[in-house]
Amino acid sequence: MGNKIVTIGFFSLNLFITFALGEYYSKTRPSTPKQEMVTNLHFFFHDTLTASNPSAVLIAKPTLTGRDNNSSPTPFGSLLAIDDPLTVGPDPNSEKIGNARGMYVSSGQHVPTLTMYVDFGFTSGEFNGTSISVFSRNPITEKKRELAVVGGRGRFRMARGVALLNTYFVNLTNGNAIVEYNVTLYHY
């Protein structure tokens, strides 16, 4: 009987401590104002679907859309994983500054569109170890378009901004593309 009382007493004490100290949030308080900074980035994104070592691979394809035999390399409903190199220039052999890792889904039934979630991680220069995150719709048939920058890590923690895209090269048969990125970031 004594063990039951000790157990119940311990359980009650534990429950009291949990309720008293176990808040899932802290009081809201004003943040210390910091100087907001603006950074502009310029680089090229190389998306290669066909090669001996592709940087974008199909991980799921549509089977119920009736478009299985579509001649597009990314028919509506296709999901691809990417690990695309980022370079200083449009030449794939130009200086590599990082990788774009994430995925995109072909999300336009009538107009070729991708919805992208990609982490652009920089591996050299001033922003080595830093990244930006993009989650946005990409209407790929438009030569110029913009994507939303929704966050970042490292020096770009809490970044927001816009990436202006310009298709530098695209092969409509195999889907390989080189895209120029001009990114404006607001961060602290």
Rank of each mutant, 00 (worst) to 15 (best):
A100M: 02
L13Y: 11
A20S: 13
G151N: 09
P139T: 14
T141E: 11
R160D: 02
V118S: 02
Y168P: 00
F169G: 02
V57K: 09
S133D: 10
H110I: 09
S55F: 00
I178S: 02
G154K: 04
E23F: 14
I140N: 02
R137K: 15
F11P: 00
L114F: 15
I8R: 11
V6S: 12
V57W: 02
S136P: 14
R29W: 06
S94M: 05
Y186I: 14
K61H: 15
D47C: 00
S78F: 06
V162I: 15
T184R: 12
N166Y: 11
L15K: 08
V57Q: 06
D91M: 07
E95V: 09
N176F: 04
F45V: 00
S72N: 14
T113Y: 01
T123A: 06
E146R: 11
F122V: 04
F120C: 05
F11T: 13
Q109L: 14
G175F: 03
V162R: 09
T74C: 04
F135C: 06
S136F: 10
N70F: 08
F43P: 01
M158D: 14
N138S: 10
F76K: 08
R101E: 05
Y25G: 06
P139E: 14
D119W: 03
S12N: 09
T87I: 02
G108E: 07
Y181T: 03
A51W: 00
Y188G: 12
I5V: 13
Y117Q: 13
N14I: 14
M158E: 11
N40I: 10
F45W: 09
P112S: 10
V150R: 05
T87R: 03
T115I: 10
G102M: 10
A81L: 15
T123E: 13
T141G: 06
F45K: 00
